[in-house]
């Protein structure tokens, strides 16, 4: 099991790095999907099959499709790659990378010092999760509904195209 974990972890990390360094948005998205799938595998082997499936269904299957959809709608393709390439020069990313590295070192230090007593892994299946979700977290679920409503209303309004303005003689009757 550990071997699978490490493989998935390496895949996830490499894919994620690829996401950040690609020039082409679609390629990056593909790598992101791979990364998500790898993370999903990790979920699965850490005893969380339900969210492993959800990760694929919702994240890879819906959210990222939205991304692709947007990319297609804007018809962005390889032509944006040239502008991007000059931004990928070392001086653009070296400082944040070093800073992140420092942060990482700190985190690693913290992790190493953390002696969480290892607990035997237990599969927490959908039933348990659902009982938790619709038991104690019922209100949170309802609130999530409101969150999605906010997202929908916001996206609807902002994404709408501007209404063409006609001369008043050309307006249809229902508008006038």
């Amino acid at each position: 099991m550990n071997i699978i974990f490490y493989i998935a972890a390496i895949v996830a990390f490499v894919a994620t790095v690829m996401v950040v360094t690609r020039k082409n948005a679609v390629h990056a998205l593909l790598y992101l999907i791979v990364s998500l799938l790898a993370v999903s595998v990790i979920f699965f082997i850490s005893g969380a099959p339900f969210v492993a499936a959800l990760e694929v269904i919702v994240y890879a299957g819906a959210i990222l499709v939205l991304f692709v959809f947007a990319i297609m709608m804007l018809n962005l393709g390889a032509n944006s790659g040239k502008e991007e390439s000059k931004l990928l020069k070392p001086n653009a990313w070296i400082t944040p990378a070093i800073l992140s590295l420092i942060l990482l070192c700190e985190l690693v230090y913290v992790f190493i010092n953390y002696d969480g007593a290892s607990v035997e892994l237990r599969v927490i299946g959908p039933q348990e999760v659902s009982q938790s979700l619709f038991g104690g977290y019922m209100l949170a679920v309802e609130l999530t509904g409101m969150l999605l409503m906010a997202g929908v209303v916001g996206a609807y309004h902002i994404g709408k195209e501007k209404k063409r303005e006609y001369h008043r003689y050309l307006q249809t009757n229902e508008n006038s």
Binding site: A140, L143, T144, A150, G151, V153, G154, A155, H157, I158
Partner: peptide
Amino acid sequence: SFVISLEVLSVSLFA
């Protein structure tokens, strides 16, 4: 509950 309400707030605010 905090994180979700925070997001409700934020997402509405984006719009």
